[in-house]
Design a protein around this nucleic acid. Sequence first.
DNA 1: ATAATATGGTGAT
DNA 2: TCACCCTATTATC
Length: 263
Amino acid sequence: MPEGHSIHRLARRHRRLLAGRPVAVSSPQGRFAEAAATIDGQVLTSTDAWGKHLFHRYDDLWVHVHLGLFGRFGDGRGEPPEARGALRMRLVVDDAWADLRGPTACELMDDSGRAALLDRLGPDPLRPDADPSPAVAKVVRSRRTVGDLLLDQSVLAGVGNVYRAEVLFRHGVDPFTPGRDLDPGVVEAMWHDLVVLMEAGVSAGRIVTTEPEDRERPAGRARRVDSSYVYGRAGLPCRRCRSIVRRAELGARTVFWCPVCQA
DNA sequence: ATAATATGGTGAT
DNA sequence: TCACCCTATTATC
C-alpha cells in the first residue's frame, strides 16, 4: 500500500472528508491518547504530504503520520463503526470518520519539528514545485548502487520498493549499477517518469507502471490489469523479452529485475 | 494454532 | 548488518 502516491491520496481524501470542521480526535488503543486530548475538538485546517509523510494541521500544531510498512487508514461517511483492534487514532467529524492503525509514527509536532523532519527529505516527485536537481546530483556522485539510492528518502522522497523496481526496468537500468556510473540524463529521465507514474498512482489509488502494449490482461471491467513489469514477478518471464525475472536483497529490501532488459 | 509475508524506518553494533 | 517496531491477511500445519 504505502508508497508516496498513497500518502498524497490520503492527504487529498482527508482534506475533502474532514477539513474545515471540528474533529473529535481519540486513541482507543491509548498510544496516542495524550496528544489526541490536546487537539480534540479543534478544526483540522489543512492536510499535506511530503514523500511518505502525512500531515494534519490543527491551529499551530501538526499531527505527523508515517504509515511504515503496516500502517493503514480507513474511513467512511456517517457514524464510525465500533472501535476494535489496535486503533491508534480515530478522527470523527459530523458526517465522516477516519481510523488509523499500525503506523510507524503518529505524533504531534510544531512548525520547527516539521521543518526539521522535512529537512531530512529529498525532493518529492509528487510536489508540483519539486526540484529534481539535488537528487540527480546526489545519485551521479555516489558510489552506492542506484537501487539503494532510490530508496533513500534523503535523496528523493516517496519512492518505495515497487516504484524502485519498476522505474529501473522502464529505463533499462541494472539496480546494482553505482550511481556515479549513470548518465545524468538517464537519472533525470527516471525522475520525470516517476512524476508521471506516481501521479497516475494518486489518481488510480494503486500502482500501475506497465504500458498497455506490454499487458497480457488489458484494463477492463472486473479484470485485473498486469500492473508491474518486475516487482513481485521473480521466476516469471519478463513481459518484454521472456527472460526469467530475478530477485535479490538490496539495501535490506527485495529487488526484482530482468537480467536482459536491465543489463 | 502458528508462521510467513508485506509497497518502511530507526537505532545499536 | 542486525534487531526491532508496527498490524492484518494469507498460507501452512
